[in-house]
Amino acid sequence: MAQSSDISQTSLSGGHQVAQFLKNYYIYFVLVGVVVLLSVANLDRYDLFERGNFLYDKNIINILRISAPLLTLAGAFTLLMVSGYIDLSVGSAMSLSAVIYAMLAINGVPFLPAFALTVLAGVGMGLINGFLVVRLKITPVIATLITLSLFKGIALLLVQDGVSAIKSGGGLKMPVWFNSYGREAVWLGLPMAFWIAVVVTIALVVAQNRSLLGKYAAATGGNPTAAKLSGINTSKVVIWLYVLVGVSAALAGIARSSFMSLGDPLSGDGMELSAILVVLIGGTAFSGGEGRVLRSFIGALIIMALTIGMLTLVPAYYQTLVIGAALLAAAASNHLVSRKETAS
């Protein structure tokens, strides 16, 4: 897909080239714009890199640490939406993974096995979604609404009555290593969870550009019938993509649970909305067939910078309003861009 857009670029006229350039790179301008806005807004009180302003290095590190779950999710979610499907259960899958991971850790399972088992649970959740959608042919929205309820219910049941989350207490103690995955700096001041998100994203960028999975996902979303007729096993592609999303949700759950040092069965609530928002900001067409993993990653950075950076400017209760407005604005601008294309 990258190659085809290169070819079309060279053959287009100047005006189209600018439009194409804007379409491919606008997201970086938005990111720079948000960062500039947030750092300038507090300049009257703090210097540019001073503690309290947005660009203070510890603030940036903190935002990136908190962003790890969403950054991990963005890539796989993009590929799924590119293929024309949706997963509303990611938030619950993330909560359930966080609870499973914390339960394993608090009961004495070491880091690596706990990590691996949680990822395996993510594979299972993805397979359930894939099974409902592909084999039982339940509409993706309904199928994943069912699993949203199911995963959330299991997560809530795993946590004992009377406690809000899995945490130290009642004779059990969280191991010391538990929060190092989400908090302890391993490189450039950033923790493992963030670097895993980067690795996942790079792998998915490569998969999208260089592997058959990326091409098949785009084909499935662009024109499912044509894809099927040209011999692509679309059912298999879709199941794979749901599994990828499930694994990403599990990784996101591990990151969140490690960062907060507890297994909270509600920690992933609303994550499906953030994921949709991020993918839309990244310019993925909701009809499927188009979208880039990297742009969604940048979209996730924008949203996290905005929601956390905003806290220094307005009270926290403005967050829902801003996210809702951003979602509608992203949807509207996507619409305008795609309409211009079909018109020209």
Binding site: V141, I276, F286, P315, Y317, Y318, V322, G324, A331, A332
Partner: peptide, 26 residues
């Protein structure tokens, strides 16, 4: 705009609740 209704109404759900939260200060 012909945007899928599920995305639109998820957005307006947050918008409406967001306004309610601002009016009641959370």
């Amino acid at each position: 705009f012909r945007i899928p209704s599920i995305i639109v109404t998820l957005g307006t759900m947050m918008l409406a609740r967001g306004i309610a939260q601002v009016v009641t200060q959370g």
